[in-house]
């Protein structure tokens, strides 16, 4: 009752000024922070890809990326990321679809979601330890298969420290990530569509072919690209698992930052540029496809 009159005069000026400056002062730290610790460091790094050791402009570093060992690294990285992305997408889709539309008991869905939240965050060094304890030479599954069935997966050509081993390990965070990002899209599939197509006499196969997949494909493709970028940038799991014996791009870059293994700092910047281009492009495509996929979720 008494406040408006007493305080009306004095704070007006400061509020007037605060109204103008306040918002900008409030967001200023964010932009300064983003510039200093995200945009500029990455930007300067990428500029370095186009400079020679004297700081002059050159395209030589980009051309040097065509070195056999670097091409091999990129190819291996792309193969592992693609395998774990496609595998993660298919299995994640199957799991999410089964839990949401598969007629399973009600408790399965929230359990799967909570678990996915945990497992998609359980990456890095500890994940590598887990897989060594499971599928390493003395791992539980390896020993079990050998003792019970007399089947030695290592004599059969499996090795946790190469392509399939790393892919299998990456799936542990790729599948849950797929479940998490695909769930809204699957929720967007309306029951009425199923009923409508059934009324018109469609088979299960036709329903999938003409309704479910056409509606879901942007989300499926987009999520697969996100998974691809996610695997492409990962360092810790591969490093702890293979101890840099598997020369994927992030591991090569890691070694380069530590001790200039390429004997050319600027080539390191070009390598970083190559990585950013691949993960950036995947993400841009993901965002575009997601926008398309969300049309059905309203």
């Amino acid at each position: 009752m008494w406040t408006p009159r007493v305080t009306a005069n004095s704070p007006r000026i400061s509020i007037g000024l605060g109204r103008q400056l306040g918002p900008w002062l409030g967001v200023a730290p964010f932009f300064v922070f983003a510039a200093l610790f995200l945009v500029l460091p990455t930007g300067l790094l990428l500029v370095g890809a186009f400079q020679n050791s004297d700081g002059h402009f050159t395209l030589q570093n980009i051309a040097n990326l065509a070195r056999a060992d670097i091409i091999k690294s990129f190819w291996l990285s792309i193969k592992i990321s693609a395998a774990s992305a496609i595998g993660g997408a298919i299995i994640g889709f199957a799991l999410a679809y089964a839990a949401i539309n598969g007629g399973l008991p009600k408790w399965i869905r929230p359990t799967l979601m909570t678990f996915s939240g945990v497992a998609s965050n359980f990456a890095g060094v500890p994940l590598a330890f887990s897989f060594i304890a499971t599928l390493g030479r003395l791992g539980l599954v390896t020993v079990f298969l050998n003792n019970i069935f007399g089947f030695n997966i290592y004599s059969a050509g499996f090795n946790l420290l190469d392509f399939w081993g790393l892919t299998l390990t990456y799936l542990y965070f790729q599948i849950p990530l797929m479940v998490l990002i695909l769930t809204p899209a699957i929720d967007g599939l309306k029951k009425e569509w199923r009923e409508a197509s059934a009324t018109l006499g469609s088979s299960t196969w036709q329903h999938w072919r003409y309704i479910t997949l056409p509606v879901l494909w942007p989300s499926l493709a987009g999520s697969t690209l996100l998974l691809f970028a996610n695997a492409f940038g990962a360092v810790a799991t591969a490093f702890a698992l293979t101890n840099s014996s598997l020369n994927i791009v992030p591991i090569l870059l890691f070694a380069q930052i530590r001790g200039d293994v390429l004997h050319d700092p600027n080539l390191g910047y070009a390598l970083a540029l190559g990585m950013v281009l691949i993960t950036g492009l995947s993400n841009v495509l993901y965002i575009m496809l997601r926008a398309r996929g969300e049309r059905w979720q309203k």
Binding site: F37, L38, P41, L45, G48, I257, T279
Partner: peptide
Amino acid sequence: LPLVIPAIIIVFGYIRMY
């Protein structure tokens, strides 16, 4: 951005810039 740019790139940038 931090989801698009891999962590190893960001820290490489720090090492160059700082």
